[in-house]
Design a protein around this nucleic acid. Structure first.
Length: 297
DNA sequence: AGACCAACCTGCTGGC
DNA sequence: TGCCAGCAGGTTGGTC
């Protein structure tokens, strides 16, 4: 499941149901799910079995579970997960029939609920990554392989001023910048469109023309829409986007533009418009978000 | 460096 | 009914 609010819903589920438990077994039904773990299936499982899950962390759309060493002490490794377009992390009672797209199963020493990675489109991935070492310290305890992922707008360390400066240095459209996970992480196609609508900005607005006021308004809109989505348990149009217990969020009912082509704008009544954008779609209100004369996309 | 695209997958929907 | 094109919430690696 995709964007920040949905991933945070999953993180909270892992915190509640998985943290504090010791992994007893790992079975990989589909090796593509761990393709990022280049040392292979045996190595992947070997690094996990016997370790205790110490925490559930997230940056942007990435999740990771720091793992305590078998002999105690600070975590050296983490199980890193990205859900891609259709990945799910589910907690299930042992014996529950396998899901059609079950990729990896984790069992625990307490013989309680299993953790299952289920992923229809197989864009998601799991890997065990070193969390820290003297040679390559991990800032903030973030796995080194996701060092290129910027802080997300709900993190305390996110620097609004630096984001504004980075946006102004770019030569592209604002939506491309919002989707660039090295500038700001966690924003995907739904929340980009929703935030731009709230901020009254068109997706093709050239980044170098944005004022500080507009960027401030945009960041406030991103935070507001994500916060509301989180409170609603995330956005789900179908059973692909669910929490660890398989339940859907209901924020889709609160979307103002995404997926609402030809429906009236909640602010002005103008029919919402859909444009092709990066092999996907962008939804705007033509009146609240007029296309700039000089557009970039 | 930074901008942009194709590629990676499966499944569903709508049009013919 | 069948088939095919188009579409889906993401990231990456490659080119320019």
């Amino acid at each position: 499941m995709p964007e920040l609010p949905e991933v945070e819903v999953v993180r909270r589920g892992l915190e509640r149901w998985v943290v504090g438990r010791t992994i007893a077994s790992v079975s990989v039904a589909h090796p593509r799910a761990i393709r990022q773990h280049v040392a292979g299936v045996e190595d992947f499982a070997g690094l996990l079995v016997g370790r205790r899950v110490e925490a559930a962390r997230r940056r942007g759309k990435y999740l990771w579970l720091p793992l305590g060493p078998c002999d105690g002490g600070a975590p050296e490794y983490a199980l890193l997960a990205h859900l891609g377009m259709s990945g799910q992390l589910l907690v299930q009672p042992p014996g529950t029939p396998d899901e059609k797209h079950l990729r990896v199963r984790f069992t625990f020493a307490d013989d309680g609920l299993e953790l299952r990675f289920v992923d229809q489109r197989t864009f998601g991935r799991l890997a065990v990554e070193p969390l820290d070492s003297a040679a390559a310290p991990a800032p903030d305890g973030v796995p080194k392989v996701i060092a290129h992922i910027a802080r997300d707008p709900l993190e305390a360390g996110f620097d609004d001023e630096e984001f504004y400066a980075a946006v102004r240095r770019r030569r592209t459209g604002i939506k491309r910048a919002l989707l660039d996970q090295s500038l700001i992480s966690g924003v995907g196609n739904i929340y980009a469109d929703e935030a731009l609508w709230r901020a009254g900005l068109h997706y093709a607005r050239p980044t170098e023309t944005l004022t500080r006021t507009e960027v401030t308004r945009l960041l406030a809109a991103v935070r507001a829409v994500m916060g509301e989505a989180l409170a609603a348990g995330g956005t789900s149009f179908d059973s692909l986007y669910v929490n660890v217990n398989g339940e859907s969020g209901y924020f889709d009912r609160s979307l103002n533009v995404y997926g609402r082509e030809n429906e009236p704008c909640a602010r002005c009544g103008t029919p919402i418009r859909r444009d092709p954008f990066m092999n996907r779609s962008s939804y705007t209100c033509p009146r609240c978000q007029p296309r700039p004369r000089r557009a970039r996309w």
